[in-house]
Design a protein around this nucleic acid. Structure first.
Length: 297
DNA sequence: AACACTTTCAACCGCGCTCTA
DNA sequence: GTAGAGCGCGGTTGAAAGTGT
């Protein structure tokens, strides 16, 4: 079948998004939901292709996104999942609430790959690298000679504990012991298995929204639309799922994780700063556990 | 301080899958 | 059964930021 370009590229803007564009996109999606990305640019007045809008929303503007580097636990999980799933980033991301496939992919390529190579582990196969080119930088790491390692049980490392299990008949990953969470116990959700709750028709055309959420999460857009008092343009105040300083009706957005380990996101809205300005330039995200600002864009 | 090099990550590209007529 | 439309995914790019000299 012939393929047309995803959009008419003439006159469409490319490159980094501006705060104004973000504002338009957020407003549109909050009003209309995630529906028919191809139509979004026209209806919202954006000079972007629908694909670009979808990417911007899913990778950056979604209210439930975490920001900042992956935690140690998340990193371990990514390594474990990658050993089982390969470069299926969207599947891996579906196990990490608030993380996007793009973010995980980037983190893998920029951080985890290096760590694994440093440890003498082939990031592709999760097996020991050949001895001649393994462990090129042997500074603070002390991996055993790769040929002596059991690929299923690499030695612990001071900086990156490999919990990956290669092969179908494996023991439960260490994560299960450490965190009560076993990736083997989490069935992969195939698109046809996604059971969308009947709701507004706005999101029914795509199963994508489900892929970003774990079982405890909610469809952000649908729920936003259900909020009678929601006013995106007004102060959002703080939102946090723990200490009760919620002043926004959006608090549930980031409180869906039942195990309580998910970082909550606190967006500080101070006059005259508003969320849209923060989105691009000054978004503050607070790590709930440490209560340290770890991402100040 | 200035330049070169490296790293990071947001965004783009194109393919493949699914759905519908 | 087929073609077209739409979307999602994974690979790649390139600008910006960071680091070293």
């Amino acid at each position: 079948m012939g393929r047309q370009p995803c959009c008419d590229k003439v006159g469409l803007k490319k490159g980094p998004w501006t705060a104004e564009e973000d504002k338009k996109l957020i407003s549109f999606i909050l009003t209309n939901g995630q529906c028919c990305w191809r139509a979004v640019p026209k209806l919202s007045g954006l000079l972007r292709c629908g694909k670009s809008c979808r990417l911007r929303w899913t990778n950056y503007l979604r209210p439930d996104l975490k920001r900042g580097l992956l935690s140690d636990h998340e990193e371990k999980l990514v390594i474990d999942l990658h050993s089982q799933l390969g470069n299926r980033w969207s599947k891996i991301a579906s196990h990490l609430p608030g993380r996007t496939d793009n973010e995980i992919k980037n983190h893998w390529n920029t951080h985890i790959k290096k760590k694994l190579k440093k440890m003498g582990i082939d990031p592709l196969t999760h097996k020991p690298l050949p001895i001649n080119n393994s462990n090129p930088i042997n500074d603070d790491q002390s991996p055993k000679p790769p040929q002596d390692q059991d690929p299923l049980h690499p030695p612990p490392s001071s900086t990156c504990e490999i919990t990956s299990q290669v092969g179908p008949n494996t023991e439960p990953p260490i994560d299960q012991v450490n965190n009560g969470f076993c990736t083997d116990e989490v069935p992969l959700i195939e698109p046809h298995e996604i059971n969308l709750v009947p709701s507004t028709s706005s999101s029914s055309s795509s199963s994508s929204s489900s892929s970003y959420e774990d079982g405890n999460s909610v469809n952000i857009v649908e729920d936003l639309l259900d909020l009678p008092s929601f006013d995106w343009g007004c102060d959002l105040g703080f939102w946090d799922d723990d200490d009760g300083i919620i002043s926004s009706s959006l608090d549930f957005l980031i409180s869906g994780d039942s195990d309580g380990t998910q970082y909550s996101r606190m967006v500080v809205d101070q006059e005259p700063m508003n969320l849209f300005e923060m989105t691009q330039y000054s978004r503050m995200v607070v790590d709930q556990e440490s209560m340290n600002l770890f991402d100040l864009l």
